[in-house]
Structures are given as structure tokens and as C-alpha cells.
């Protein structure tokens, strides 16, 4: 950063002082948020991670568990199933949601009649009550006489899928519901980011004779990179943590077909009162997401232009 470079060139004592002062200024920006964040979120989080090495039933008898909780993971069938299901869900949701929300944002950034209405409409599933969302989605995909299956029958499919009532189709149904619920949310972020692209860039490109695709490829896409980075990380993390939607739509069923890690964590903690083991599962989830996030950060350095 320029200021840092400048200080390096001046005499060493004042450089050190200035550097310290600079650091203090920086910390003063972060402090108000960090204080609240550290006390009310970070400390309990560290608690919960420590719990992974303890046995605790939520009332008394804390005892040291060592790696017992982690050994247990290897024998837990449901954990294995939930882990695979979580990956299934993430892989199904993240790219699709990103593509659709980007497409919608580009479309609704055009001067279209009624775009305010469309934007509000697309944001709606995100704010609507989850119960209504789950009911409506299940109704659309109602096996016997839902509109989707009626349509499929019209196309000549004699035995359309039984969607959320079938072990094989329950997860795709949930994934589609998730894309539908969250695309409006990420569309808003893209819309806001699109406002940050200087129009001179497009004007200059137009003078150079760039076509629509080239303008998108060489101006819009790179300029959206910070937003894309944010969305890819947030979407990945929240998808790994999916809970509410699955809870109301299928509650992990049929059987364990849509059981995911956080649902399993919740059941272990609040149905079986094994807080230590539940924390161990959360820890695994945390490590997976951490690794992916670090990889994404590395990639950010490569494709986000920090000017």
C-alpha cells in the first residue's frame, strides 16, 4: 500500500512511530465491530469447538473425551450419509444459484418496463414465511396431481417422479427449492455490484467496437469479481450449513435421504444430548468449509483485480 511504502523511505524512528500510529488507526476502525463480535460470537464458538473434546450432556458431568468423539464419527452411519448428502446439496445448489442470480441481475439491470415489480417478485421467496415456501413447493411437486407432474404426464411421461416422497428425488426437489428461494437474494447483491461499474468503461469499449459478449466478458465479469467472490463464499458456507429449509420440507426424509450435517448435529445435541459429539460433527463441517474458503481466497488473489 502506498502509505506503507512512503514510511519505509523516511528515517527509521519516525517510520516506526508512523507505522505504529497507522496500525492503531487501522485497529480503531475494526475495534467497535470486533469487540462485539469477539465477545458474543467468537468466544461461544471457541467454547463449542472445545466441547468436541469433552463429554457433556447439557446439565452436568463435563468430562474429558480426548478423541473419542472423533472416533465415534467413523462408526456413525448417519454421519456418513449426512456428509455425502451435504456435498450433494452444495454441488447441486452453489453453481446453479450463482448462474441464475447473475442472469437475472443482468436482465433486470436493463431498462425494462416493470423491472421494479420483477425485482420485488424475485426477492419474494426469500422473505416469505418458510412454511409457505415449503408448502407451495411441495404442492407444485405434489406426486399425484401437482402441476409439475400433470405437465410431465402431458409430455407422455407415464410414471413421473414422486419428488419429495421418493428417496431418489427428494434431494433434487430440495435443491430446486433452495435455488428458487435464494436466487433473488443473490440477485440483489449482483444488482448492487453492477451499479459500481463505471459507464466510461462501456463507452470506451463501444468506441473500440467491442460487441455485447466482449463487453460482458472483458468488462462486466471482471468488475463483478469481488461480488462473485463474496457470493461464492457465502453460498458455499450457507449451503454447507443448510438446516431450516430441509427441516420444514422433508425433515431429513424419506428415511435419511435428505439428512444433512447440521440437521444431524441438531438431532444429536437436542434429541440425544451429546453436546460433545455434536460439536465434533460441527468441527468437521467447520474444517471442510475452512479448507474450501482458504482455497477460494487463494483463487481470489488470482482472479479478483484489487487495482
Amino acid at each position: 500500500m502506498e502509505t506503507a511504502e512512503l514510511t519505509n523511505n523516511t528515517s527509521s524512528i519516525s517510520a516506526q512511530q508512523r507505522k505504529r500510529k497507522h496500525n492503531l488507526t487501522c485497529y480503531s476502525f475494526i475495534l467497535p465491530n470486533f469487540l462485539g463480535f469477539a465477545i458474543f460470537t467468537l468466544i461461544p464458538m471457541v467454547f463449542s469447538l472445545v466441547l468436541a473434546f469433552l463429554h457433556w450432556d447439557g446439565a452436568n458431568k463435563i468430562s474429558f473425551a480426548g478423541l473419542d468423539n472423533f472416533k465415534q464419527l467413523l462408526e456413525d452411519d448417519t454421519f456418513r450419509i449426512a456428509l455425502l448428502n451435504t456435498f450433494y446439496y452444495v454441488i447441486g445448489t452453489v453453481p446453479l444459484t450463482m448462474l441464475v442470480s447473475l442472469g437475472l441481475a443482468l436482465l433486470l439491470n436493463q431498462p425494462l418496463v416493470g423491472r421494479n415489480f420483477f425485482r420485488t417478485a424475485y426477492f419474494f421467496p426469500y422473505v416469505a414465511s418458510l412454511v409457505a415456501v415449503a408448502v407451495v413447493w411441495n404442492m407444485l411437486f405434489y406426486p399425484a396431481a401437482g402441476p409439475v407432474n400433470e405437465f410431465l404426464r402431458m409430455l407422455g411421461v407415464t410414471e413421473p417422479p414422486r419428488w419429495s416422497a421418493s428417496v431418489d428425488w427428494a434431494m433434487p426437489t430440495v435443491i430446486m427449492a433452495s435455488v428458487w428461494r435464494y436466487m433473488g437474494y443473490y440477485m440483489v447483491i449482483y444488482l448492487a455490484a453492477l451499479q459500481g461499474i463505471p459507464s466510461q468503461l462501456y463507452e470506451a469499449a463501444a468506441l473500440d467496437g467491442a460487441n455485447g459478449w466482449q463487453r460482458f466478458r472483458y468488462i462486466t465479469l471482471p468488475m463483478l469479481a469481488p461480488a462473485t467472490f463474496f457470493i461464492s463464499i457465502m453460498l458455499t458456507i450457507t449451503s454447507f450449513k443448510v438446516f431450516d429449509l430441509i427441516m420444514v420440507m422433508t425433515n431429513g426424509g424419506p428415511g435419511r435421504a435428505t439428512n444433512v450435517l447440521v440437521l444431524h448435529t441438531y438431532n444429536i445435541a437436542f434429541r440425544q444430548f451429546r453436546f460433545g459429539y455434536s460439536s465434533a460433527i460441527a468441527m468437521v463441517l467447520f474444517l471442510i468449509v475452512l479448507i474450501i474458503t482458504i482455497v477460494q481466497f487463494r483463487m481470489e488473489d488470482r482472479w479478483v483485480d484489487y487495482q
Binding site: 447439557g58 457465502m234 450457507t238 447440521v262 448435529t265 445435541a269 460441527a282 463441517l285 474458503t293 481466497f297
Partner: peptide
Amino acid sequence: LFLAYVASIAIPWQAYMVPQFIM
């Protein structure tokens, strides 16, 4: 510090709900 911020999003609230409540 920033990575710590982002990583913290990865821990599900259900996991630290009880410690937080006790605090």
C-alpha cells in the same frame, strides 16, 4: 483476522447456541 471473520460464518449457530446462552 479477516479469515477468522469469514471462517466464523462456517460454524453453525446450532453448535454454539448453548454456550452462548449460558454466557
